[in-house]
Design a binder for these strands. Sequence first.
DNA 1: GCCAACGTTGGC
DNA 2: GCCAACGTTGGC
Length: 152
Amino acid sequence: MKYWLFKTEPNTFSWTDLLESPRKTAEWDGVRNYQARNFMMEMKKGDLGFFYHSATKIPAIMGIVEVVKEAYPDYTQFDPQSKYFDEKSTQEKPRWFMVDVKAKREFTPPITRDELKKFPQLEGMLLLKKGLRLSVLPVEKKHWDFILSLRK
DNA sequence: GCCAACGTTGGC
DNA sequence: GCCAACGTTGGC
């Protein structure tokens, strides 16, 4: 089992939006970066991930999600009306994939980026690296466990 | 709102 | 296949 981090701008899709979705489950559509896509293709049902708010006043990990459906073609790439439309992608050879995630647990309060930065245990964590723009990231088990220990 | 860091594009 | 130019991300 692996651990991940799903990054989203709350303006676009927030933790609350996820909780209000049917069965607290959402399609992680719109990823248009090859590295992030490849990570999603590695995901297995039952893998867990942090749900992270970026590009907002208080960037923070809001909670934990579970991968409930493994990678399948992101249909927004075929929809000319969608802003995620990709004219170079075909049904036969889809270029972009997505997974489904379900809310499992909420952190109260959320674990802010400022809080995370205080801990030497989290040095080297991808999320905290400057300039890292991937919307889907792997999280090392040691970092995962440490962060969980912050909210028993 | 600024700007550093990064991925992508396209000319050659 | 290199790399400059460009657009975007995202912390601050």
